[in-house]
Design a binder for these strands. Sequence first.
DNA 1: GCAAATTTGCAACATTATAACACTTGCTGC
DNA 2: GCAGCAAGTGTTATAATGTTGCAAATTTGC
Lengths: 168, 168
Amino acid sequence: MPERALPYRPHNHDACVSQALADARTICREQNARLTAIRERVLELIWQSHKPLGAYDILAQLGSEGHNAAPPTVYRALDFLLQYGLVHRLASLNAFTGCSHAGENHHGLFLICHQCGTVLELESAPVSQAIDDAARAQAFQPEGATLEISGLCPRCRAEANPGAPSHD
Amino acid sequence: MPERALPYRPHNHDACVSQALADARTICREQNARLTAIRERVLELIWQSHKPLGAYDILAQLGSEGHNAAPPTVYRALDFLLQYGLVHRLASLNAFTGCSHAGENHHGLFLICHQCGTVLELESAPVSQAIDDAARAQAFQPEGATLEISGLCPRCRAEANPGAPSHD
DNA sequence: GCAAATTTGCAACATTATAACACTTGCTGC
DNA sequence: GCAGCAAGTGTTATAATGTTGCAAATTTGC
Ligand SMILES: [Zn+2]
Ligand SMILES: [Zn+2]
Ligand SMILES: [Zn+2]
Ligand SMILES: [Zn+2]
């Protein structure tokens, strides 16, 4: 599996998209799931940038390209993509973002820039471990997690504070 | 500050409520904020149990006790309570829960039982630290967090699996 | 081909949240 | 006390997000 580019830096984003679509096709083939035209198009729209998209944004884009869709069409496609781990829903934004670890059965940690909207999905073993420990200490059995951190991404930090060095 | 009771065990919940209201009054007095009748009543309704309440649930309860309120009334009260850290909004549920660390300027970690709906708010330094480290490793400057863990609380675990010992 | 199952189209509806504006209340300075 | 002002509340309408139910079309398995 190739290393993913960081969304903060300029990168060949077409590669992000085609990688995501290729992964999706593989995953669906392996699981005998039907990645139909609409589902694939919704996934592609979500991957058009690293900024999450609302269901009605997707609906509008489908509409603008001639596909006269109603809300259930979009939500059903999203349900499918969620089910197979191809996208995530960001509860704090009511929006959807492509999963950059599709097929790895995980719950991500999302860094959401409130300035530019860019989202980076991480997997952090220390975070998962700390949460698991905290839950276990309460005899709570964790099953799903919503971990969304809002803040400033490196690019927007640099813009806000031009003199400061980046430690990246 | 007295130790809070755990919501999972039977406890004198009236004490939770009156403690929360007393804290709220103190905090508002200190900050010259007006804890008006509606705001206080909304806070009290939210604290009526350890299960989060939707804005329209609050609205319905206000209605059933003769206060003929419209949505903005409730949302304005909630905005006020959020602003002063007296309640939290749970993004994964579109619902509100009383803050059990009011005045301590924090972002909580919420353990949400998907069986009974009970929510426990924690503060976990290891979790906060791990998240901070993960963000910093991406040169991301965190400002706010949405940390909501869904799973089974100890009571519901015991019901689901009666033979198992509780490690509590 | 044909029956069954899945997917899509479509209309209506449910839930959650906000905007705009008028009215009331409580404080401030006189 | 009382004008003037800011903060809070009432009310209506509307926006944004998400769901239900059913019929038509497509795909699948045989
Ligand atoms: Zn990219
Ligand atoms: Zn940014
Ligand atoms: Zn209690
Ligand atoms: Zn809290």
